[in-house]
Design a protein around this nucleic acid. Structure first.
Lengths: 168, 168
DNA sequence: AGGGATGCCATGGGATTTCATGGGAAGCAA
DNA sequence: TTGCTTCCCATGAAATCCCATGGCATCCCT
């Protein structure tokens, strides 16, 4: 089964804050949860990040384990490690996908990103980002404005291998 | 059940100094108390640390046992061991979670961190930190400001692996 | 290839349980 | 007594469980 997310999807949010996880994404959560087996509920981690985040980020168990390990490998007490722990341990929640294939987003998190009627999922490698359809539209504009001076017809793959530490 | 804390939560502090331990955290205290069984009260240790601490730190019994062992393995009489004993033995208290899932914080401790109406819990690996909502907000800003080139909107994971000086 | 059956999937709703929180009354110390 | 604790109960709100339905895609049989 697939081990990475690909694609995007828009779903409804009901009055109880329930959000149906599109089946293709559910499969990824299942196969990346080491304790999962048919009939069980796939576990996952919701990272909601600091105050300014307008989205949630859903991680498979395996992806989160990798992150936990990387953080644990950083020097104790370093500012970077403290900040990462604050975000990925402090500003995160463990949950599971319910028997009907839905995720229940606690009221607090819904309010944080202004989630009401609809939720927009978009793949990001080994995690899935959740936006309101409106704020995702803004985000997309922001992203496009960041695209460097790509010559018309340039191949994005030319970026592979180049790495700068932060984005702008 | 989960053996590590994840997430954060804000709760009320009532006139009697009672603080409800959010259920997800209570489960961790239960499963990390070797003597606990259904119906019993989970034990824990409150570390309030030195004068400058603006938070309390709540440890499960198992986590505290580990710390005790590590301290016991240090050379007797060393300055480091004395300091650690002073904090984790001298400036700490054993308590339990009451039948309603609440922790009663002695007045002395509430005064120490200025706890009045609300308490903010945040996970820190195998312990839980307690702040006033106000001082936590400051702490969070401090954490962010310590990481030099962390720009708003950047992906925090870009920090993975980068490790600089320790904080003060 | 057509058409029906089957199964999966997104969505909805009612009933039940858990949870955070508030308050009264009984114990205990100063 | 007066002021803290400790125990027990009450309550509204939120979360969870369980079942229902209609649409869509897939499979299978003819």
């Amino acid at each position: 089964m697939a081990r990475r997310f690909r694609g995007s999807e828009e779903v409804k949010v009901d009055a109880k804050g329930r959000v149906s996880i599109p089946a293709k994404f559910r499969r990824v959560f299942e196969s990346c949860d080491p304790d999962w087996s048919t009939g069980k509920r796939p576990q996952m981690v919701i990272v909601f990040g600091t105050r300014d985040w307008k989205h949630l980020q859903l991680f498979t168990i395996e992806a989160m384990n990798e992150i936990d390990d990387s953080i644990a490998a950083m020097p104790r007490g370093s500012a970077e490690r403290n900040l990462l722990e604050n975000i990925y341990h402090g500003h995160a929640e463990e949950t599971e996908i319910d028997g009907d294939g839905r995720l229940v987003l606690p009221q607090k998190l819904r309010e944080k990103i202004g989630l009401a009627d609809g939720a927009f999922f978009i793949s990001a490698g080994d995690s899935l980002k959740v936006w309101t359809p409106e704020s995702y539209a803004e985000e997309e504009q922001r992203l496009e404005s960041l695209v460097p001076d790509f010559e018309p017809g340039a191949d994005p793959l030319s970026l592979l291998g180049s790495a700068s530490k932060t984005e702008g």
